[in-house]
């Protein structure tokens, strides 16, 4: 994934999950039974809304960090995909778990939330640890050495 696409998709993620807030507010305002009477659904839709939006912002920050830290392309392109997918899985997992919940617990889709969280956390850790010269291909490393 290119840096530009990552940034655009991350901002898009924020936009989608923030827009979801309008839906939640409308449900409160209209006193829709499926929302007002269903505490478990309400809780998980809120979790999805909050996590999706915030983790979208984390992706925006990550997009800038990857550029700023000059993370090697082999890592950076994959970190972008994993981090964005992770944020999406967390947000969508909460929402789908809330919409399809049982009498006491969220539905099975919520099981993708930990997977998404793991992908995002590992992406952040990799961004923090992988340096510009690490794991670069030999020809790229040689050219970099010549330039110096």
């Amino acid at each position: 994934m290119s840096p530009e696409r990552h940034l655009r998709l991350s901002v898009g993620l924020v936009a989608v999950f923030l827009a979801m807030g309008l839906w939640l507010e409308a449900m409160i305002g209209l006193r829709l039974g499926g929302w007002v009477d269903d505490e478990l659904r309400r809780e998980f839709l809120r979790l999805g809304h909050a996590h999706g939006g915030l983790l979208g912002l984390v992706n925006v920050a990550l997009a800038y960090a990857l550029e700023r830290l000059r993370t090697p392309a082999a890592w950076a392109t994959r970190v972008r995909v994993a981090a964005w997918l992770g944020a999406l899985l967390v947000g969508v997992g909460f929402v789908a778990g809330g919409l399809l919940h049982g009498p006491t617990d969220p539905g099975l889709p919520v099981l993708v939330v930990p997977a998404g969280a793991l992908m995002l956390v590992v992406s952040l850790v990799a961004t923090a640890l992988v340096r510009p010269g690490d794991l670069a291909p030999p020809d790229v490393a040689a050219r970099a050495s010549e330039q110096r």
Binding site: P72, A74, W75, R78, V79, A82, G86, A115, G116, L118, M119, V122, S123, A126, L135, A136, P137, P138
Partner: peptide, 18 residues
């Protein structure tokens, strides 16, 4: 070949726990 192996290593780390 090294570049591809670095990519595979990144994928393993990024997606392995999930």
């Amino acid at each position: 070949r090294d570049h591809e192996s670095d990519g595979a290593r990144a994928r393993r780390w990024l997606y392995g726990p999930a």
